[in-house]
């Protein structure tokens, strides 16, 4: 009796102390702001697969170059990340240039990689900096199933106009009112769907809704691996309503030394859209670990 209660108490204490120490070492609120010592670079990422993989790529490449890295991956949406990098709790995050610009200055008219990057450099707060954009793109893509495309002979967003009033569109809530989102589809292509169904951002719910026919057209990231594996048709955008999003590192400038910047630049110039999509597929479809996916890609690159 005494032994068992002693054991119970002992294990309870052990668990409590483990939990406490785990909390103490990983408490995100305890991280000192800034990186004045220049020792550790904190790499963060948003909470969707591609961004986590890119965060891993950044972290591993910087580690290989001898930097001390702390990973804070899979955190949340831009709404959460942006303030963290502004006060330098995070030092580097993989970003998307046009979406970031639309976040910082919603009324922007800039279109295309060069124009967007120039506009970004002007509107970002003083401490923040974006590096060169990669050629790799992850765009917003309006997709329909192969079946829907074939039956209705749909290739471009223009072709949707006749069908839209009978169809339901699925996308995330914030996309409905964006000028480069659903609002743009209405203004540029005159698409007025029967309903805009609020679903997730290029996640399992949108994909399931497409497959089950609950929605006829939906928004996916163009690098979503299911586009290929499920044979969805990405509709062409001849009026350039959706724009392009290049992978672009966002930095808290004072925390990232020049050598680290040149490594991130080197990653951006090596990365292609196809490789990005392939990495997403390894992670989402083949269920590989993000760290392994990143390491596999980095092995074949000449990053310096």
């Amino acid at each position: 009796m005494n032994i068992t209660s002693g054991l119970k108490l002992g294990s309870a204490l052990a668990i409590a102390s483990l939990t406490l120490s785990a909390c103490a070492s990983s408490d995100p609120l305890n991280t000192p702001a800034g990186n004045a010592s220049g020792e550790t670079i904190v790499v963060g990422s948003a909470n969707f697969p591609e961004n986590v993989i890119l965060g891993e790529v950044y972290a591993q490449a910087l580690e290989q170059a001898g930097f001390k890295i702390e990973r804070k991956l899979n955190i949340g949406a831009r709404e959460v990340l942006f303030d963290q990098i502004k006060n330098c709790t995070l030092n580097v995050v993989p970003e998307y240039n046009q979406a970031l610009l639309a976040f910082v200055s919603p009324e922007t008219k800039a279109k295309g990689t060069t124009e967007v990057d120039e506009a970004l450099a002007k509107v970002l707060p003083e401490d923040l900096k974006v590096l060169k954009s990669s050629a790799a793109q992850d765009n917003n893509a309006v997709v329909v199933t192969a079946d829907t495309a074939a039956k209705n002979n749909i290739k471009t967003l223009d072709d949707l106009a006749g069908k839209a009033p009978e169809w339901t569109f699925g996308g995330p809530t914030e996309w409905e009112s964006r000028p480069d989102g659903y609002l743009g589809l209405q203004n540029n292509y005159g698409l007025n769907f029967k309903e805009y169904k609020v679903l997730d951002y290029s996640g399992p719910i949108t994909i399931s809704a497409l497959d089950k026919g609950d929605i006829q057209a939906g928004l996916l990231f163009s690098t979503t691996p299911q586009i290929k594996s499920s044979g969805y048709v990405v509709l062409e955008d001849p009026k350039d309503s959706l724009g392009v999003n290049n992978i672009t590192p966002l930095l808290c400038a004072k925390a990232v030394p020049d050598k680290a910047r040149s490594i991130l630049d080197s990653i951006s110039s090596s990365l292609s859209t196809e490789e990005l999509t392939a990495m997403n597929a390894s992670y989402v479809l083949d269920k590989e670990d993000a760290a392994d996916v990143a390491a596999t890609w980095l092995k074949d690159q000449d990053i310096k």
């Binding site: 699925g170 809530t173 719910i205």
Partner: peptide, 20 residues
């Protein structure tokens, strides 16, 4: 329910979060 496109009071919470 709002997470999967239905209504209810969750609509305000999910839409509000998405649109800041």
């Amino acid at each position: 329910a709002a997470y999967v496109g239905l209504g209810g009071l969750g609509r305000y919470i999910f839409d509000g979060l998405g649109r800041r």
